[in-house]
Simulated assay, not measured.
Amino acid sequence: MTRPPERPRPRRLPLLLAFDLDGTLIPDLGREVPAATVRALARLRGLGARVAVITGRDAAPPHVLATAQPDAVATNNGGRVELNGELHREARFSEDELAAVLAHELEEARVVVFRPSGLYAELPPGHPPEAWMVERGVRPLAQAPAGEPTLKVGFYHPGVADFAARLRASHPHLVLTGAQPPYSEFLTVTPAGAHKGAALTLIAQGLGVELERTVVFGDSDNDVAMLEIAGYAVQVGHLPLLAPHADDRVSGPQALGAYLEGLADRLEAAEAPAT
């Protein structure tokens, strides 16, 4: 599915600006929003624009929350949605779905399971946890509390594309992202309806903004669902598969601030009284 012909850039309020995190609002694996973007977001908020962060991570870094000051945050690829700091939705696997996801048959795979109490990993014998797992306090999957719901599962393995194809055939309602460039060896699985398009819809409704008044920024395949339904879609970076889904493009996170300043200029010009 591709978007209709390029739409004009938004020039009037109300607007909801929704951002992916890694590779979009912040550099890949970064923790801080570039200063130029922070300034532009403050200006846009002052004009009345609303801001949302919609990420594949299970939590947004504190610096992002402090500087972007989003009205809404969606994590786990959109499976968990918070509006004004309050939990609005949390998608969970059924027991049967989780059993199918964990029956992956990927020898030597690293599997990370995301639950409300924390992160749990199943690692190949003899493979110690990675540095980020130690930093996040990831525990063995066998220690996960019995009966606790699962929100997301991540796989690291060269064969995730084949597993993704099998899982799509057996459980087509589950949401799969990754398993293709640039994440050829990484696959994320979330429950039915847990995708960024659904999160954008819920956030827009909760904030009282029509979808036609949303501007979305994303850089990867898990952003396609929200790029498709947004009023205006901006690709960040150069990933070819996103080009058919975007109305505009920004070269990367470091160029985002200047792009947002241009948007603020247009909003101010539209709101200025006629002379």
Rank of each mutant, 00 (worst) to 15 (best):
P158G: 07
A72K: 02
A60P: 02
T55S: 15
G23W: 03
E261L: 03
E268V: 00
G48A: 05
R249C: 05
V64S: 12
P116D: 14
T177N: 12
V101S: 14
T67L: 03
D96W: 05
Q205W: 11
D219T: 09
D71E: 15
G46I: 02
A258E: 13
A100K: 13
V234N: 07
L241V: 13
D247W: 14
V101G: 04
I203V: 14
T55G: 10
P125Q: 12
G46E: 10
V51S: 11
L260G: 00
R249A: 13
S184E: 15
Y183L: 15
G154R: 08
Q143G: 06
P10E: 02
A264N: 00
V138K: 04
P4Y: 11
A66R: 14
V81F: 01
E86Q: 05
S94R: 15
A269E: 04
E108N: 05
V73K: 15
A272F: 01
F217H: 04
L200Q: 06
T177C: 07
L21I: 06
E268M: 11
P124R: 07
D248Q: 09
A246E: 09
D96A: 11
L15V: 09
L241W: 00
L241E: 15
R168G: 03
V64A: 15
A246D: 05
P191E: 06
R80C: 07
H173N: 08
A204I: 02
H171L: 04
K196V: 10
E185N: 13
